[in-house]
Computed example of a mutant assay.
Amino acid sequence: MESRIADLRCKEIINVSDGCRFGYVGDVEVDLESGRVTALVVPGRLRLFGLLGREEDRIFPWESVRRFGEDIILVEADAAQVRRAERRRRREA
């Protein structure tokens, strides 16, 4: 079975232990030296229709992924495993 990283963007992340839905994959972290995916990133939700910015992104380590389905990715994540990334406010010119 062949797949691409772009195919992950269409999949929703759901916690196996409590059924919590975190959202859709927005990005992945890749270790450039080994060429392996290290984490899945779910963008934070919009605050007040985006007028107040976004919540922090949620980052799921690759080790927490348990199963891939056609439409979903099942993860086993607790609060300690899920990192929240601070959004970078600086834009490169």
Rank of each mutant, 00 (worst) to 15 (best):
W62H: 09
R90K: 10
D7I: 07
G19S: 12
R45V: 08
P61K: 04
R58K: 15
D78E: 06
A93M: 10
S64K: 03
C10P: 05
E92T: 10
A93V: 13
E12K: 11
L48D: 12
W62F: 09
W62G: 09
I73T: 02
E86G: 13
E76Q: 13
D31N: 15
G23Q: 06
I13E: 01
L46V: 10
P43G: 02
E86D: 08
E29W: 09
F60A: 05
E56I: 05
E29F: 11
E33A: 13
Y24G: 05
R54I: 07
V75K: 00
C20V: 11
R67V: 08
D7T: 13
E86W: 12
R90N: 08
D27T: 00
D31S: 12
C20S: 12
E55G: 04
E29K: 14
V30M: 09
D18H: 02
I73P: 03
L52R: 13
D57M: 06
D31Q: 08
V42A: 01
S3K: 15
D71V: 12
T38G: 08
D57A: 11
A6L: 14
E12M: 11
L32W: 07
A85N: 12
G44T: 00
M1Q: 12
G44Q: 02
V82A: 04
V65P: 00
C20Y: 07
F68G: 04
